[in-house]
Nucleic acid binder design. Structure first.
Ligand SMILES: NC(=O)c1ccc[n+]([C@@H]2O[C@H](COP(=O)([O-])OP(=O)(O)OC[C@H]3O[C@@H](n4cnc5c(N)ncnc54)[C@H](O)[C@@H]3O)[C@@H](O)[C@H]2O)c1
Ligand SMILES: NC(=O)c1ccc[n+]([C@@H]2O[C@H](COP(=O)([O-])OP(=O)(O)OC[C@H]3O[C@@H](n4cnc5c(N)ncnc54)[C@H](O)[C@@H]3O)[C@@H](O)[C@H]2O)c1
Lengths: 214, 214
DNA sequence: AATATATTGTGAAACAAGTAACTTTATAAT
DNA sequence: ATTATAAAGTTACTTGTTTCACAATATATT
């Protein structure tokens, strides 16, 4: 029905700020407050909620507790969210040891690498050889993987993952891997986003076309 | 003039695949080829190029060399792209040592941290105390920073950076920091994107509204 | 109890982005 | 030289998203 990615990200953000508001002792919240906090318009907040049947009170706003609970259900946070990390180099190990994941219900259950030197099956989060990945995924019903292998290995690994029950990948290799309906890939291209920042800083105010043509 | 971010990301992608095509010995490319490679429609490729006065030949497509050069200028890749890393923990150090940056013209010139234990002014990429950051930014004319400090420190650091000549930040702390016209923030919320994948996998095919209402 | 008011919820309007279809023109074929 | 054709460049259309404006209504006030 609804395949808009942005609205889901906003729902996530609304929930995150509401969690903080709750921490401050707040009980209810208005579309205006959420709009300010998240940086969108109040009507968009209401539209977003309306779209998912998240209702408030005609006067008195939304009950934070209530909304957070509903959003958790909606966003699937009531389920365990197990992930594996493929490629345990600099970035992969940072992800494996990231202490923010447990806080939001994401659990890294294993890492995989092709280099025997980094393997460690006995660690709290084991690093296993990538040759055993299919078996592991099947046994542990893994649905999501983070891909942190070098660029040349990325597409090959995707081809392997497609043959498993993995259904979503967050890719950090600097190339745009293509998603399909039954196999979602979210590309996090850090290099590209930095380039993009430079572009916007450097050229955005002046007319980029003229810069080029001149 | 043009404030559409997506088109800039696509230009980056077109350029990246053209660099690879060039590596394969190709000389010219058609909108159809680029469309296939990047996963967009041919008319969008042409429109994107047209928007930035990137012209080809009415028959015979676009000259790869020519286009890559023009895109490099347009995207600012002819300039040095210096960045600093603020917060040299797990993720910050991964970024500092990322060997993909030089390849695309991005140079990490320093890291900053508040923990004396991680400082190292003598390293090839020095890690300096964050108390000296303003001075360093001014002296080295830093325009872009990567923010990899813990979430509670993030907003404070942004407030500090706003008083410097830094004009863009790529933020990895899991909160949405707000951008403005003269100070751009790109939020890379890894946790949120993983949540988002789980949402899409779990709920997208079934009707999410009904799941919630039921 | 009656009235005023604040805030939600939503249909319509405005806007932005992408697609499709058409026009132009350079090259190739005859 | 003429004609055909392939692909760029452009315009018009379609689709999707956000904002606007207001009706509905729950709460507060008198
Ligand atoms: N380090 C960063 O901050 C950073 C930033 C942006 C993008 N990236 C991208 O993320 C990816 C990883 O970067 P990194 O810095 O961690 O690199 P890295 O070289 O430190 O780590 C890569 C790891 O992948 C392993 N590997 C190689 N081929 C494999 C395969 N076929 N299967 C399983 N494991 C394999 C290697 O043994 C190594 O341990 C790269 O694509 C890089 O471009 C990294
Ligand atoms: N590690 C990951 O893979 C990962 C993934 C997603 C998001 N993040 C986010 O990135 C940020 C960094 O994560 P990490 O895992 O590297 O954490 P970390 O704790 O390993 O590193 C944080 C570093 O920031 C330094 N620091 C703290 N306050 C500072 C300040 N005011 N000024 C300068 N330096 C300061 C600390 O001394 C430490 O070295 C966090 O916000 C985290 O949520 C990390």
């Amino acid at each position: 029905m609804n395949s808009n990615q942005e609205v889901i990200r906003r729902l996530s953000r609304y929930r995150n700020v509401m969690r903080k508001m709750k921490g401050l002792g707040l009980v209810k919240v208005f579309s205006d407050n959420l709009a300010d906090a998240v940086g969108v318009s109040p009507s968009l907040v209401r539209k977003d909620f309306s779209m998912f049947n998240l209702t408030g009170n005609k006067r008195g706003g939304y009950r934070i507790d209530d909304l957070v609970t509903k959003l958790n259900t909606l966003l699937g946070k009531d389920k365990k969210q197990k992930i594996i990390i493929i490629g345990c180099g600099k970035l992969g190990q940072a992800l494996m040891n990231h202490n923010g994941f447990p806080r939001v219900g994401i659990r890294v259950v294993a890492g995989f690498d092709s280099d025997p030197a980094v393997l460690n099956a006995e660690a709290p989060i084991p690093i296993l050889h990538v040759k055993d990945i299919k078996e592991f995924i099947a046994e542990n019903e893994i649905r999501v993987a983070a891909l942190t292998v070098p660029e040349p290995a990325a597409q090959g690994m995707i081809d392997t993952l497609r043959k498993t029950c993995v259904k979503g990948v967050i890719n950090f290799a600097p190339l745009t891997l293509k998603s399909s309906d039954d196999f979602l890939i979210h590309n996090m291209n850090i290099e590209q986003e930095i380039e993009n920042l430079f572009y916007n800083i450097h050229f955005a105010e002046s007319n980029p076309v003229e810069n080029l043509v001149a």
